[in-house]
């Protein structure tokens, strides 16, 4: 049964096509003298713990901003370090795999927490006009000024320039518009080189060795995604505990084969650096992304240090 979503019937059709074609920018990775888009920078990527600090500070800033607008906002729990792992092509941390398998329970728990966000219940309990004011204060007004960032794979993405979320990020990163542009580019480059990377002979050789390692351990899979695709079948009808056992056994084998028995992780890391290095047209955005990230960590530390300790 479909539940009520809209307060009003929205039938108007405006003859403005906001989404257009998304022809991929294509791989522009030729040229042996291309600068390395990442290595040209002087700063490392943030650790997961540092990113957690930034996210926690962002929530406090949103809380302050919403309070200034007259609304209650409870800082949303941010993903833990453990919950920020396991997203790559192949698992590269045996200890994490031994504890969490493929991270299914971790992610389900995180999504459940976020879906139970008490701020949503608070917003839904407000009178209609206040609920709208709340939404616009928190997330901005799409009919007002929008920021636009071009995506590497084609097309663009927009977000309101003025909102409590925007203000919070602006305070953390120093310049929300610059951050929005740089982040959308730096975190969306992989589509430009993933297909080429997996077709690279060096990757294919490493993958074949990994697959052979897995086969010798009794797990006959051509590549890591094949395991993920097979997991629903393997765990169907099992208790959560048994399902985790299945995950852990496979995940540990995958990670051991990837890190100790073959070179697939190190080879892929090198190849990714090489392929990203050829994307010189995005170098400035990546440098800006990393610079603003590190600035945000420092701001986050100051914000969190100034926060009163919990009374209990």
């Amino acid at each position: 049964m479909k539940r009520a979503f809209f307060d009003t019937c929205v039938a108007a059709v405006v003859a403005v096509a906001v989404v257009g074609c998304t022809t991929a920018a294509g791989s522009e990775m030729s040229g042996a003298d291309a600068a390395d888009v990442d290595a040209a920078t002087t700063e490392r990527a943030l650790t997961d713990a540092e990113q957690m600090l930034v996210d926690e500070a962002r929530e406090l800033l949103i809380e302050d901003c919403m309070a200034a607008e007259g609304f209650r906002y409870l800082p949303v729990p941010v993903a833990s370090v453990e919950e920020r792992q396991g997203f790559g092509y192949v698992l590269d941390d045996v200890g994490w795999a031994r504890e969490h398998g493929y991270g299914t329970e971790l992610q389900e728990r995180l999504v459940a927490i976020l879906q139970d966000d008490p701020n949503t219940a608070y917003a839904n309990a407000l009178p209609k006009a206040e609920r709208l004011r709340y939404s616009k204060a928190l997330d901005g007004d799409a009919s007002a000024e929008m920021l636009t960032a071009e995506l590497p794979m084609g097309g663009a993405i927009q977000t309101p320039s003025d909102s409590c979320v925007a203000h919070a990020k602006g305070e953390l990163y120093g310049d929300f518009a610059a951050w929005f542009q740089a982040e959308k580019v730096a975190t969306n480059l992989v589509g430009l080189y993933a297909d080429d990377l997996v077709a690279d002979e060096r990757f294919e050789t490493a993958l074949a060795a990994w697959s052979e390692c897995m086969r010798e351990r009794g797990h006959d899979y051509p590549d890591p995604p094949a395991i993920r695709e097979d997991l629903p079948r393997l765990t169907d009808g099992l208790s959560d505990e048994k399902a985790l056992d299945v995950e852990q056994e496979l995940a540990v084998a995958e990670a051991i084969c990837a890190t100790r028995e073959t070179s697939i992780v190190s080879t892929t890391r090198d190849l990714e650096s090489e392929y990203r290095g050829r994307l010189r047209q995005y170098r400035d955005d990546v440098i800006t992304y990393q610079r603003l990230q590190h600035a945000a960590v420092e701001h986050a530390r100051e914000i969190l240090a100034a926060e009163p300790a919990p009374s209990n």
Partner: peptide, 12 residues
């Protein structure tokens, strides 16, 4: 990410 290509928002 699902993109757009125009800088115009949709009023609807």
């Amino acid at each position: 990410l699902l993109p757009i290509t125009s800088a115009q928002a949709s009023a609807a």
